[in-house]
Amino acid sequence: MRQNPSFAMTDVAELRRVIGENPWATLVGRDAAGMTASHYAILLDPERDDLTVVGHVGRPDDLVLGLGRPEQELMVIFQGPHGYIAPGWYGDVAAVPTWNYVAVHLSGVPEVLDAEENLRVLEHLVDHFENRFPSPRGMWTPPNDEAFVRRLEAGTIGFRLTPTRVTAKRKLSQNKPDEIIENVILELSRDESHPNPALAAEMRRAHDARLAARAQQA
């Protein structure tokens, strides 16, 4: 993803928020046949406070993604809120349609986990999503037994990625006047044909942060 200084995201806390809220990621790697993209749920490493992520892939995706090959990079892409921006929302000015979005790209050489650590990552993944339910079921909840869970683990490869390259972009109409940004947020909130409250909320968050920073500098 080409970086644009006007839209760059660099704050680690904000990057962690975007990753945490959008765990369904795209993994891009390569083998001798070329590049492959796969899709998995990826989480922030619960034992770290940086941008390290953990996850797993099913066999044989580890081979086509090049996991475990020395110096073979993996790219993990997190897609935040995004959506169409109509030119009419800019008012009576020359304008073209565009697409607002938030995206985070993490690249680095992944560490392949042993079986026990992979089990911990799988358990963390299950707990993360099950805890939203009234009666969560963990990895070890009956009728799951140890033999079943071990067979499940054996069919996966766990990994940890501490990125050596981070490219993150938040293209949310920052290059437009305040009144236009406010109107785009309003339209995204009330458009009955294509409502996009998630993108409106992301734009509001970014715009309010800019206004606060501007006030501090005044």
Rank of each mutant, 00 (worst) to 15 (best):
S107C: 08
G66S: 06
L63Q: 08
N175A: 09
N22G: 06
Q79L: 05
G83N: 02
K176Y: 02
I85M: 07
P142W: 12
L186A: 15
Y40H: 11
R160M: 03
E73W: 08
E116K: 03
G138Q: 03
D145Y: 11
L67M: 04
E116C: 00
S6H: 15
F129W: 10
V53A: 05
E130K: 07
G91P: 15
T98Q: 13
L113M: 00
E130M: 08
G88D: 14
R17I: 08
A201C: 13
S189E: 14
T164K: 10
A86S: 15
G29S: 10
V18Q: 12
P70V: 01
A218S: 14
A103L: 06
L67T: 01
Y84W: 05
V166L: 09
P46I: 00
P197W: 03
Y101P: 02
M9N: 06
A25S: 11
L65C: 08
I77A: 04
Y40T: 08
G155N: 08
L106V: 02
R165G: 06
A198I: 05
P134F: 04
D50S: 01
L199C: 08
F129D: 06
T162C: 03
F159R: 04
R16T: 02
T52G: 04
G88P: 14
N183K: 04
A37D: 05
I19G: 13
P5Y: 05
A32E: 15
D11I: 05
Q217K: 12
A37V: 03
A168Y: 10
F129K: 06
D50M: 00
V96A: 13
T167M: 14
M203C: 14
N131E: 11
T156S: 01
N144G: 05
I85C: 09
D62M: 03
G34Q: 14
P81V: 12
D62S: 00
R137H: 03
R150H: 10
K169D: 15
A218L: 15
R205H: 12
A212V: 07
N196V: 06
P163I: 00
A13S: 12
V166P: 14
L44F: 15
L43V: 09
K176Q: 15
F7G: 10
P81G: 12
Q72S: 13
Y90H: 14
D145V: 03
R132C: 06
L15S: 13
D127P: 07
R165S: 11
M203E: 11
H56C: 02
I157P: 00
A154G: 11
Q72D: 05
G138H: 05
A168W: 10
G91D: 10
R48E: 05
G68Y: 00
G155S: 07
Q216M: 13
T26A: 11
I181E: 10
H207I: 02
E192P: 03
L172R: 12
L125H: 12
T26C: 10
R160E: 03
L113D: 01
P23C: 11
T164V: 09
N100I: 08
P5E: 07
P197K: 09
D31S: 11
F133N: 03
L43D: 15
F78V: 02
S135Q: 09
L51H: 06
I77V: 09
E202L: 08
E130W: 12
E111M: 01
S189Q: 12
A209Q: 14
Y40W: 08
V57K: 01
L122N: 07
H39D: 09
P134R: 01
A209I: 10
G108P: 00
P195D: 09
